[in-house]
């Protein structure tokens, strides 16, 4: 067992973990933040995507111990002061989700992507979400949700 300290959604969490504990299980089962999902186990589906030190990664393919001393943002950390962020709002307005299982991963991918791309083209958005599988929406409205958020971010600054 090893002692780790991970800042998740701005809060420090200390825990004793087995080195083999996957980050996704640390988040879901130790911290009980169940918005981060598991869909494929082989780093293909992106349902487990979180932002680790500013970069969106698949938390099923990172050991929790690798996150020691680092910062993790999960879907539960996106809402600020009771207000959805622009991308969450975009998903709501544009019907970017159906069963909701891939949605947290899609939101976390977008969190990083839109920070670095103020005016993404549709093609860039489609490539950006190509590590996140959605079985319900056919992606059309997810692309629109990203465009909605990008527009809002250009108009009203970051969130």
């Amino acid at each position: 067992m090893a002692a780790i300290n991970v800042k998740v959604n701005g809060v420090d969490h200390k825990a004793e973990v087995e080195p083999r504990l996957l980050l996704v299980h640390f988040i879901r089962e130790v911290l009980r933040l169940t918005g981060t999902h598991i869909g494929c186990d082989t780093s293909h589906c992106g349902a487990c995507t979180v932002v680790l030190d500013g970069r969106a990664v698949k938390s099923c393919t990172v050991f929790a111990i690798q996150a020691d001393g680092r910062e993790v943002l999960t879907v539960e950390g996106l809402e600020q002061d009771g207000k959805l962020n622009h991308l969450q709002e975009g998903f709501f307005q544009e019907h970017g989700l159906q069963c909701g299982f891939c949605t947290p991963g899609m939101l976390m991918t977008g969190y990083e992507f839109l920070k670095n791309n103020a005016e993404p083209s549709e093609d860039e958005i489609r490539h950006a979400i190509s590590g996140n599988l959605c079985r319900c929406t056919g992606y059309v409205n997810i692309v629109k949700a990203y465009q909605y958020a990008a527009q809002k971010m250009r108009e009203g600054g970051a969130q």
Partner: peptide, 9 residues
Amino acid sequence: IADPLVRNQ
């Protein structure tokens, strides 16, 4: 190579 999330790691 793989996808953007994998490429981040």
